[in-house]
Design a protein around this nucleic acid. Structure first.
Length: 271
DNA sequence: AGTGCGGCCTGTCCGC
DNA sequence: TGCGGACAGGCCGCAC
């Protein structure tokens, strides 16, 4: 499941293969993603040059001369660079063929992802316009998070998973960050001190940075279709570990549903 | 305005 | 062994 670190890893992986390449052909095998792939996309992209590959939250932005392709990998999406003549498989829905003889191919079994096109500034696109700050930039700090949290009764876990508050904190990283910060996931966001928000912000940054370093590992088997946490799973402290001993105090980790999402925490270490 | 929830999908796992 | 059903999960869009 692509979290922010995997999207960033994907960006770094595909960028050198795409930049300065021309689109020779666009192939849509299945238009039906979260939103339909635009019908005119193939015509729009024909013979266009790729300028850059950027990321905003979990959105990938491929900039062309006349517009930007907005790609989200949803739950199960992956992008790979392959030779043009390699056989497409069942869930390979979309493909950009390049002048290099390679192609960028999107696989997404659950089809929660999307491929959209805009001619305008992509940051002004409806899906991106009201996103919160990038968690790894300086502007995401405890002053900001504390200020946004005031008077909010929402569980802090749901609060930090809200992309209008901060982007890229998925279900796994939310649980892990709250564990590191010693904060109970169900505590009301508005009833947490500024000092504890400092701990939370630094935990979020730490967890995401560590996972991006792991992304370097998954970069090597970039072509593998796994979709599972795999290598990353072993260093999770609480996620998916209900009943197992807390790495800090040894008492059993508890699982609880918060905001319709499985949440894991240590009731002793997190208050 | 803040909050909660339905819905989109398919692979995996579990019980019978 | 086969089959149905529950479940996971990002996140928009809607309802309250």
């Amino acid at each position: 499941m692509p979290e922010l670190p995997e999207v960033e890893t994907t960006r770094r992986g595909i960028e050198p293969h795409l930049c300065e390449q021309t689109i020779t052909r666009t192939l849509v095998r299945n238009r039906k993603l979260r939103w339909p792939i635009p019908a005119k996309l193939a015509t729009e992209l024909q013979q266009q040059l790729v300028h850059s590959v950027r990321r905003r939250g979990k959105y990938l932005l491929i900039d062309f001369e006349r517009g930007t392709l907005i790609i989200h990998l949803g739950m199960s999406g992956s992008l790979r660079i392959l030779p043009i003549d390699s056989a497409a498989e069942k869930h390979d829905h979309f493909e950009l063929q390049l002048s290099s003889g390679q192609c960028l191919r999107l696989r997404d079994p659950r089809r929660f992802g999307c491929v959209l096109w805009t001619r305008r500034d992509p940051f002004k696109h409806k899906l991106l316009a009201s996103l919160g700050p990038e968690p790894l930039l300086k502007e995401f700090d405890s002053d900001y998070l504390y200020a946004r949290s005031r008077a909010r009764k929402q569980a802090v876990k749901s609060f930090i998973m809200d992309s209008k508050i901060v982007v890229g904190v998925g279900n796994i990283y939310a649980s892990e960050s709250l564990f590191l910060a010693g904060i109970h996931p169900q505590r009301a966001a508005g009833r947490i001190s500024e000092k504890r928000y400092q701990q939370l912000v630094s935990a979020i940054k730490k967890v995401l940075q560590a996972a991006i370093r792991q992304g370097g590992t998954s970069l090597r088997d970039f072509t593998a279709s796994d979709g599972s946490p795999g290598y990353f799973k072993q260093q999770l402290n609480v996620y998916g570990r209900a009943g197992e001993p807390c790495p800090r105090c040894g008492r059993p980790i508890r699982q609880q549903t918060i905001g319709q999402r499985a949440s894991y925490y240590c009731p002793h270490c997190q208050k």
